[in-house]
Every structure is written in structure tokens, then in C-alpha cells.
């Protein structure tokens, strides 16, 4: 509070004063890191990998990296809406991705592809609406709510499937989707980019996207402006659920198999990608395109660790650390901005 009153008593005219403040702000390191750091970090990481990691710069490996990035990227793109709306994250994507994958393969085998997709969409809507109502209407904490829906959803899935693995038909449409390439690009990769661009347009160009961003930066003001805020939250969680569903489809198509444990780690990888990309976990600031960059970063990092022989434990440690560090930078940037 005191620095503000001190600057107010200065004799500079207001416009010049604002300009000066803007100038000093531009050079705050923490803010720069929070905003633009991802470009530098990704570049450094890729450079490091090219120079020091054997086998990283080969074409098959790079294609593999981006192929693996597709499902996690689609999940993260959808979850970005929840993060920007200021509701931290959607932990239940783990359950949603696995459910969508199992439903796609199992129901396609039993009934057909179209019923499978419709059924999966219905499940995604249920997830989005349940999470959204608990968070948006009851104003319950999103972390706790999605933690409990994760356990309910995974419990249901494992109970109903008995933990068994489902194999798709060897020449079915799912298999075809998973293996088709257009030019050098796998179809999954193209779907990932299309979904990202579409969701980015939804966030930046539609009324709904505007309301999500407004709600994330100031809930009370958004409510007073006459926005139906519970609907905005339900919408954000539904976007996340639909993203998780598509991610589950792509994941199932890759191996043409589905099992309830196949999405382990999707929650924190998606969150890490979103936060590292520069979307603020405090809500209101961020974009789907940034998440795309974050996904590239997290995928390259994971690939480096796999190529160096570091297992799942090390990957979890690294990504947990990454989340804390990225949020710390964001928090420090906010402090600088407020001072």
C-alpha cells in the first residue's frame, strides 16, 4: 500500500507517470518469465535434447513424440477452460479418458461405432454437468470435487470392466484412424491441431469464451454483470470433459486396445502443460495456443527422460516439480504486478 501512495504524491503528470510505470514493468524478470518464458524454455530444452540425447533428433522419434502428445494435448486443451475459469483443474480427466477409451472399443465391438461415440458423449456430458454443478452451483472446491468424481468414475469403470483389456477389431475403423497418415503427419496429430485451433477460437471469439475469461478474472463482477455464472462453470467443465473424451478416443485408436489404467498420469501432465504454457492458475489469463506450447514442452521433457532411461517415478517427480516451479513464477509475477 505504501509505495502506491508514495508514487501518487509525485509531481509527474498522470499520463507520464503511467508510461513510466509501464516501462519499469516491462523489465520485471518474473513477469517476463511467466508470460514469455515458455518460448525460451522450450527452445533450450529442444536444443539440449538435440545435442546431448542420442536418438532424440531422429525422424521416427520426433514423430513418436508428437504422436504421443496428441491425446494429452487434446485433454489439456479442453482442461484449459477449467483453469482459465479460475477453478484450478479437473482431476477427473484420468477417469474420463479411460472411460471414453473403454467405451469406444467395447461398445464398438458389441453394437457399433456410432452408438459407441454417442454413449461416450453422453458420459462426457454427465461428467461435465456433475463437476460443473458441484463447483458452479454449490461453489465447492474444484480439486476436492474432481478428486471424488475421479474415484467414483474409476471405481465404476473398474467394477464394470473387471479391469480387463479390450481389443478392437483388427481392421475396424478405430484401427484405421490410429494408423492413417496424411503425408508425413498421422491423423491423430492433425486432429490434435484442429481441436486446438477450434477450442482457441471458442475461447477468444465466442461469448462463452469471453465469459469464461471474465469469470476467471473476477467472479463477483461477472455475476453482477448479469452473467449466469453457474452455466459458465458447467460449460467450462463440459469443454474439459469433451476434450478428455476425444483424448481417450485417440489414445484407444493408437494401440487399438483399452484398459481402465491406461490414462494414469494424464491429470498432472495436462495440468503441467497448461501451467508451463503460461496460463495462470489464478484464473482469467491464458490461452489454448499456450497450452499447445506447454504440451510440446512436457512431451519433449518426458521423451528425454524415457530416452535417458528414467522411469515413471522420475517423470512424476520432474513434472510435480515443474508444476510447483511454474506456479511459483506466476505467483511472483503477480506479486511484482501488485507492488
Amino acid at each position: 500500500m505504501t509505495p502506491k501512495t508514495a508514487s501518487g504524491t509525485r509531481t509527474l503528470p498522470p499520463a507520464a507517470q503511467v508510461e513510466q510505470e509501464l516501462e519499469t514493468r516491462a523489465f520485471k524478470l518474473s513477469e517476463w518469465m511467466a508470460q514469455q518464458g515458455i518460448f525460451l524454455f522450450t527452445a533450450v530444452l529442444v536444443l539440449f535434447a538435440v545435442v546431448f540425447i542420442d536418438g532424440f533428433a531422429s525422424l521416427p522419434n520426433l514423430t513418436d513424440v508428437f504422436n504421443r502428445a496428441a491425446p494429452i494435448g487434446i485433454v489439456a486443451a479442453g482442461m484449459t477452460f477449467v483453469v482459465i475459469s479460475g477453478n484450478y483443474l479437473d482431476l477427473s480427466v484420468v477417469a474420463q479418458v479411460a472411460t471414453a477409451a473403454v467405451v469406444l472399443i467395447a461398445v464398438t465391438n458389441a453394437v457399433g461405432l456410432v452408438p459407441a461415440i454417442l454413449f461416450a458423449i453422453a458420459i462426457a456430458l454427465v461428467y461435465g454437468i456433475v463437476n460443473g454443478i458441484a463447483v458452479g452451483v454449490f461453489k465447492a472446491n474444484a480439486v476436492i470435487v474432481t478428486l471424488s468424481t475421479t474415484f467414483i468414475g474409476l471405481g465404476l469403470l473398474r467394477w464394470l470392466t473387471g479391469g480387463s483389456i479390450y481389443f478392437g477389431e483388427s481392421d475396424g475403423p478405430i484401427r484405421t484412424f490410429g494408423t492413417t497418415r496424411i503425408g508425413p503427419l498421422p491423423l491423430a496429430m492433425i486432429l490434435f491441431i484442429v481441436v486446438t485451433v477450434l477450442l482457441s477460437l471458442v475461447l477468444t471469439r465466442t461469448n462463452f469464451g469471453f465469459m469464461v475469461r471474465a469469470y476467471g478474472s473476477n467472479r463477483e463482477a461477472t455475476r453482477l454483470a448479469g452473467v449466469n455464472t453457474p452455466l459458465v462453470v458447467i460449460g467450462a467443465f463440459t469443454m474439459s470433459a469433451l476434450g478428455a473424451m476425444l483424448g481417450g478416443f485417440v489414445l484407444a485408436a493408437f494401440s487399438n486396445t483399452a484398459v481402465s489404467s491406461m490414462s494414469d498420469g494424464y491429470d498432472f501432465r495436462a495440468l503441467a502443460a497448461i501451467i508451463v504454457g503460461g496460463t495462470s492458475v489464478f484464473g482469467g489469463r491464458g490461452s489454448v495456443m499456450r497450452t499447445l506450447l506447454g504440451v510440446v514442452f512436457v512431451s519433449v521433457l518426458t521423451n528425454i527422460m524415457v530416452l535417458s532411461g528414467l522411469g515413471f517415478g522420475f517423470q512424476q517427480m520432474a513434472i510435480g516439480l515443474l508444476i510447483v516451479l511454474a506456479v511459483s513464477v506466476d505467483a511472483l509475477a503477480r506479486k511484482t504486478r501488485a507492488a
Binding site: Y88, L89, N141, V143, F268, L271, V281, F312, G313, F314, Q315, Q316, M317, A318, I319, G320, L321, I323, V324, V327
Partner: peptide
């Protein structure tokens, strides 16, 4: 929520 979530993943790893 976020700080201890990061710790959750880190410590589990």
C-alpha cells in the same frame, strides 16, 4: 491446493 498437488506428484514419484 496447487502447491500440495505438485508435492503429491513429486513425492509419489
Amino acid at each position: 491446493f496447487i502447491a500440495t498437488l505438485g508435492m503429491l506428484f513429486f513425492l509419489r514419484g
